[in-house]
Design a protein around this nucleic acid. Structure first.
Lengths: 228, 228
DNA sequence: ACCTGAACACCGTTCAAGT
DNA sequence: ACCTGAACACCGTTCAAGT
């Protein structure tokens, strides 16, 4: 009655979970099915992961760890150094779109996520950013990666469903949504658009560092009142 | 045997779902519990919503619809006009953090989401952006709102858990994560930081429109190779 | 000491049986 | 014709009963 495959381990469970989600989506990832995939009962998994939540956290951390490359530290141009991480993260997530919501919304902070944050923070500090601005910069870079990628990752399925969206393409809703109707058919390459956003953010960070940001457009309650 | 409360309706179900999630979080929102909250059995809800998925989509659309204010169209400064929507969206989501993952990840496109997209697109077109750049601009603005807000929304719970994070604050991990240790204690106001990001993005959009963007940092596979 | 089958307390949704 | 209780096919997780 020895197990039909090699002994389980935390890493084998983790890898099987990633493979299962890659193959059949995040919804298909249940403890029961994951167990079946590994040739064991679901309960055996609890010997290696504390809970499904802990497993999801481990998956997130493994993915984020993949965004780091020790090699990047040798890039002397801080813009290129930041761009390298941002593009690697984007590629990583677009390769497994199911992971975006996990990475974007789980508050857990594992070593992978810490090393990723450290990489960005160090790049900014090395570039002469103050501690305060490096802190903001980390959040700006992280927010950009996640927000933009989440949006691109969720778009294909929208087109697949697309009852309303098709009407937009056909121009049937032109009177109600003239702006979208005018722009929706524009050429649209995900990687190209992401690269544009990366450059926009990095240029913005450079301007922040150098004190070249314009006056505020308005903060907090101000925006309710037109200020033109 | 008349129902103990007023007759159900799609809107009453929707409002109850929002209230339940507000009170007890998204995990507490089950059809059974939602029914109980309305004094009916879970199955009665299916008379007014096609499925739980459809209900979640309706919740998203109701929330996003709240980001629009007809008043904004009269703001002549396009920067202020964009900033108004971006700040309203942020406030709306920070008031119900459970909604961020829903809004950020659901691919459904309802009328609320369309009107929100139309507002941003029109603001950009009116400001002289080309159709192509307005299209990119919508994605840039939307990605910024969602990415940044998701990040801020997930942070409080991280601090609550915070085994590793506390060590960072204490400086115990200074040798492993020197950059984060140096920056983590910086003063940090969510609204202030978001306003910074909004201004950074709007300034970036203005520069895009005027053809003042710098040379690309690198796209696609290029980033794997140091280009400094 | 270790493992796991059955069980518990849930899900979303279906549908036949009731009125 | 309308409504809904019971049922189905799942969940994550516990724990006592087995070896």
């Amino acid at each position: 009655m020895t197990p039909p495959r090699d002994a389980l381990s935390h890493d084998r469970v983790l890898q099987a979970a990633l493979a299962l989600a890659d193959a059949h989506g995040l919804d298909a990832l249940s403890m029961r099915r994951l167990g079946a995939e590994l040739g064991v009962e679901a309960m055996s998994l609890y010997r290696h992961v504390a809970s499904k939540e802990a497993l999801l956290d481990a998956m997130v951390d493994a993915i984020v760890r993949g965004w780091i490359d020790e090699h990047d530290a040798s890039i002397t141009d801080w813009r290129a150094r930041l761009a390298a991480v941002m593009h690697r993260a984007h590629d990583s997530l677009m390769a497994r779109p199911w992971a975006v919501e996990l990475v974007a919304n789980r508050p857990s902070v594992g070593d992978g996520r810490l090393r990723y944050a450290e990489t960005i923070t160090t790049a900014l500090l090395d570039a002469g950013f103050t501690a305060q601005l490096a802190h903001h910069g980390l959040h700006i870079v992280d927010g950009t990666i996640m927000g933009f990628t989440a949006q691109q990752a969720r778009r294909p399925s929208a087109v697949a469903l697309g009852d309303r969206v098709r009407e937009l393409y056909d121009g049937a809703l032109a009177s109600e949504y003239p702006g979208i109707t005018r722009t929706i058919r524009e050429h649209h390459d995900h990687d190209e658009e992401y690269a544009l956003m990366v450059d926009l953010v990095i240029e913005g960070l450079a301007r922040l560092r150098d004190g070249r940001m314009p006056a505020r457009t308005g903060v907090g309650a101000d925006y309710a009142i037109a200020r033109a």
